[in-house]
């Protein structure tokens, strides 16, 4: 009976190997899922916005207010508010931009849109400069115009080595006071606003962009038919407010 033992062992060995690989794959999947959000958060916070900006040491437990007053578009008394955490260099943010504009046009005064900065400088080298350009334009009352220009021309500047000069040309086309714009770009006020938005993102557990909150509730958009879903959620929020 002795020779039978190794034979049956050999017979079952592949099954054992397959089960072991399956188990390892499942465990690896779960570990990766867990570490992903943590890594994204750390990567963002480890990157100083500028040398002068204060860095948050740990994630605050209470939601932070973000930059005040926030950049908002639409009626302040609108029944539905979308708060978007965006990175001007993030391609999905760029492709979401025209969709959101269509939604804004369709809902009119019933919808308010708030934009929050969440630049991801570790993978988007021009993201912080873009956020600074938008904020600097904002100091002259042209935040949304610059916001739209940055998203609409994302493909032109995302890989550019001299993105700043492109942002300057956008500012010029918006008829900004160029001397003031240049002075504001890296100013403490501008950086503090961006930092405040990033801290708000962190306090809300936002790990990436674009992340949307509808009336304070984070939305998990499905991978397919995301825009249709978003419209459905806005309709539901409006109906809820009416009651």
């Amino acid at each position: 009976m002795n020779p039978k033992k190794p034979q049956s062992f050999k017979r079952y060995l592949p099954i054992v190997i397959i089960i072991a690989v399956f188990a390892v794959a499942i465990i690896a999947f779960l570990i990766m899922m867990r570490s992903f959000s943590d890594d994204a958060r750390k990567a963002r916070l480890d990157q100083p916005l500028t040398s002068s900006a204060a860095r948050p040491d740990s994630r605050p437990r209470t939601p932070q207010p973000g930059a005040q007053p926030p950049h908002e578009r639409g009626d302040a008394s609108a029944a539905a508010t979308i708060e978007e955490f965006g990175d001007f260099q993030c391609p999905p943010c760029g492709s979401f931009h025209p969709e959101l504009k269509k939604i804004e046009a369709d809902y009119g005064s019933r919808l308010r849109v708030v934009f929050r900065h969440l630049p991801l400088p570790q993978i988007h080298k021009n993201a912080v400069a873009a956020a600074q350009a938008a904020e600097a334009a904002g100091r002259q009352g042209r935040f949304w115009q610059m916001h739209d220009m940055l998203y609409e021309n994302q493909s032109a500047w995302e890989k550019a080595t001299d993105a700043s000069s492109m942002f300057t040309s956008y500012a010029r086309s918006l008829n900004l006071d160029m001397q003031r714009f240049a002075g504001d770009l890296n100013s403490t006020d501008v950086n503090n606003r961006i930092r405040a938005d990033m801290m708000r993102a962190d306090s809300l557990g936002v790990t990436g962009t674009p992340t949307l909150f509808l009336n304070g509730r984070e939305m998990t958009l499905p991978s397919s038919n995301a825009i249709q879903y978003l419209r459905g959620q806005i309709d539901a929020a409006l109906a809820e407010k009416k009651q």
């Binding site: 990766m32 899922m33 994204a40 990567a43 391609p91 993978i123 790990t207 990436g208 962009t209």
Partner: peptide
């Protein structure tokens, strides 16, 4: 598995992990 994690983790990692895959995975 790595790509699945990225996808399942949703839009949040589309812009936080690797730039080259943003457009393709989105």
């Amino acid at each position: 598995l790595y790509l699945t994690v990225q996808h399942v983790a949703g839009r949040s990692v589309r812009c936080t992990v690797i730039t080259g895959c943003d457009e393709v995975l989105a």
